[in-house]
Design a binder for these strands. Structure first.
Length: 403
RNA sequence: CGGGAGAUGGCGGAGUGGUCAAUCGCAACCGACUGUAAAUCGGUAAAAUCGGAGGUUCAAAUCCUUCUCUCCCGA
């Protein structure tokens, strides 16, 4: 029995669902109203960026993240684990460059002391605000309650692909310990009396609907570690099970010589380790065809930066026959169109003749190409609206196709 | 009219005697992007004998003379 629906205080989520990322409190270059028009029903935001730049205490007093954003539909918060992973990973790659430059070396050693993970939590220097920050499983949970998220995520400890087996095993161990601690904190904070005091959620419309908690299965590209991680977490009984790390063979995720691109087998393997009655969330996935594959093997919740970032870079998703290159997964297919290419400079057609979004109904490829090349925010906005419209309709097609 | 500064590839702008057929950036073309330190990053190609003429020197974009043009300040 495949899960079809998640109930939240801000409405139901139809599965499989795709949630765009509103990292700094905004889906880059569009408004939430634009997102709604593009068919977006639920979004992801990050606890860390909000906490550091605005402060979750303030959001709580304000009346919660939904009110603050002006977004009345479901919000999932990410824990902040990934950001730290990202920082540490960058730090390692800088250091591995073996610079003989004295200044560079001193910067490297500074990075080592700025960002580190212990069993207590993640300590790091925020690159934007330049403040030292300690994130623990408990504080991450507290922040997410302050925000009043509908779906929450435990602090997790992602793994670097080229770490040794012992190091990766240690990450899985810490990841489970943190999940336990986070769940304990979550249970404390979500008791009715506690909710009244600590969370803007209680002021919502649907009393009695609790926030849901997701944990993150780690283990990198190692099947045994994935299995161990999944089994330990299943034991703890979470609402949502997330695929941690990024299932891609790249130097910043998992280094392997064997294969390029998306790690299909691992997605299937991990999905099979999770009971079907649970929501399965493939974090950071992915290309439309990869999402389609993941749905096939049991995943039903997705978020990725691809449609929004690619839009800003002029990489547009279009229906088949409308672009330069076709991507196919089974019966689903679409094209890709790089709008910055010269061939579109005089093209009076819309981005996608089959699309009803604001960009396609009103403007030509030539105009949108021009705007993006000129770095005009209006161009980013239109392209983003288009790509999100594509993604939401792609998800709808998937939902229909699996009925 | 007097004084000053300048003239280098499509544009901006390094370089003040040899290592300069000339750094670099923008623009151009192509590509990447996957729980966003990303309006970012990478690659490729093309393009100037350095305003004109003369001179000094083994050697000049670089020094000297002169011409042309531009800009700034002052009458």
């Amino acid at each position: 029995m495949v899960k079809e629906l998640i109930k939240t205080q801000h409405g139901d989520i139809l599965l499989p669902a795709f949630m765009p990322d509103a990292t700094y409190g905004s889906i880059k270059s569009i408004s939430f109203k634009d997102a709604e028009t593009a068919g977006v029903k639920e979004i992801v935001t990050t606890t860390m960026h909000i906490e550091q730049n605005i402060g979750s205490e303030f959001i709580k007093e304000f009346g919660g993240i939904h009110k603050f954003f002006g977004w009345d539909r479901p919000i999932l918060t990410d824990s902040g684990g990934w950001q730290v992973f990202s920082l540490i990973n960058r730090q390692r790659s800088v250091i591995s460059n073996q610079s003989s430059d004295k200044k560079q070396r001193s910067e490297n050693s500074k990075l080592m002391t700025d960002n580190f993970i212990t069993e207590a939590g993640c300590s790091f220097l925020d690159p934007v605000t330049n403040q030292q920050f300690l994130l623990t499983p408990e504080s991450s949970m507290q922040i997410q309650f302050n925000l009043g998220a509908d779906l929450m995520t435990v602090l997790d400890d992602p793994i670097l692909g080229d770490a040794s087996f012992a190091e990766r095993k240690e990450c899985v161990r810490i990841n489970t310990v943190w999940a336990k601690r986070a769940k304990k904190k979550f249970d404390e904070l979500s008791t009715p009396s506690s909710l009244r005091d600590t969370s803007p959620l209680i002021k919502g419309r649907m009393r009695g609907v609790q926030p849901l908690l997701g944990c993150v299965i780690q283990g990198g590209n190692d099947y045994e570690l994935r299995k161990q991680s999944a089994e330990e977490l299943v034991e703890l009984d979470f609402d949502i099970y997330n695929f941690g790390g990024l299932p891609l063979h790249t130097p910043v995720t998992w280094k392997t010589e064997s294969e390029e691109g998306f790690f299909h087998d691992m997605l299937k393997y991990v999905s099979d380790l999770i009971p079907d009655k649970k929501c399965k969330y493939a974090m950071g996935v992915g290309q439309p065809t990869d999402i389609a594959y993941c749905v096939d093997v049991g995943w039903n919740l997705f978020d990725t930066v691809l449609p929004t970032r690619n839009a800003r870079h002029g990489y547009l998703y279009v229906s088949e026959g409308q672009g330069e290159e076709t991507k196919i997964y089974k019966k689903l297919s679409h094209d890709v169109l790089r709008i910055k290419k010269e061939i579109y400079s005089k093209d009076s057609r819309p981005i996608d003749e089959n699309c009803k979004c604001e960009a396609c109904v009103n403007y030509s490829r030539a105009y949108i190409r021009h705007l993006i090349r000129m770095n005009e925010p209006a161009g980013f906005r239109l392209a983003t609206i288009h790509n999100l419209t594509f993604y939401t309709s792609w998800m709808q097609d998937i939902r229909i196709s699996i009925k």
